[in-house]
Design a protein around this nucleic acid. Sequence first.
DNA 1: ATACGTGCAAAGCCTTTGCAGGTGA
DNA 2: TCACCTGCAAAGGCTTTGCACGTAT
Lengths: 154, 154
Amino acid sequence: MAQLSSVYRRLEEGAKRLTPQRELIIKLFIDRPGQHLSAEEVHQLVRREFRDIGMATVYRTLELLTRLDILQQIHFNDGRARYEINLETTDVHRHHHMVCVRCHRVEEFQEDLLEQLEERLLAERGFRVVDHELKFYGTCRQCARKQQGGRRRS
Amino acid sequence: MAQLSSVYRRLEEGAKRLTPQRELIIKLFIDRPGQHLSAEEVHQLVRREFRDIGMATVYRTLELLTRLDILQQIHFNDGRARYEINLETTDVHRHHHMVCVRCHRVEEFQEDLLEQLEERLLAERGFRVVDHELKFYGTCRQCARKQQGGRRRS
DNA sequence: ATACGTGCAAAGCCTTTGCAGGTGA
DNA sequence: TCACCTGCAAAGGCTTTGCACGTAT
């Protein structure tokens, strides 16, 4: 798979070894595109296949993969970092998040309307953007339906 | 001052007492519009006038004021929460942040281009936005100049 | 009297680090 | 050999909580 080999290439470029623990963590993210896993969740999932992996290894691996640009760290203001994979097909800079404040599920959307704004920030304020994040907090369709049902009853 | 009385009104509506500690913390934010203070910074600043205030009181007050919508909590991914005041003149939803990754200063900008996008998210995906945050990370004008100077020298 | 507010210390969470013991090149 | 990697336990940093003591209403 092209995406996998690109991940391994990036690992090699970082002069790092592909240990079983690291491979399992990478596979986890490849098997779940579009998911945003916390360190705790990664630990739980990997432990199904590698019982003795420690949290320190998980954190060190997540840090390494983030540094190699294989993962991206995201904060959704719930006090813990989450990670998602950076496949070559994924343009990180045109991909943002909708966080449901009820079920905490995260949806994504593509949008490039920030580019013109970034150009204006450079021209008008001298601020050169290297990264950005846009997050919407609200209620997703499913939770809106549930909420509506609850209100009817009361 | 109209802004001050609005803050006090919101405190009363919350059925909360205006203690000297709380008043000092509120004044801190009113005297520094546009600043984004961490709990530690608030503690340091208030201690100049109220030596014995404890961190717990600072945290409890910041939590209270956030709940009363007098302050707003913000995360800039540096591992600590920051707070800014919500004056009635400030439209929280059209005010975003540019975070300099070198000097860590935060600038603000006004922009309302998100509204049409929010309408589309509701229409196309059923997601009803209640809050959003847009942050740009990059280098500010001053740091860009310093950097340029350094490069010329090397 | 009673509910509220405070400072202090302890505990909680998430995350990082030190260390001794492996393992691959 | 030697650099790298790991699990465990301990420590760090930010934040919350328990508690006994005050203080307003």
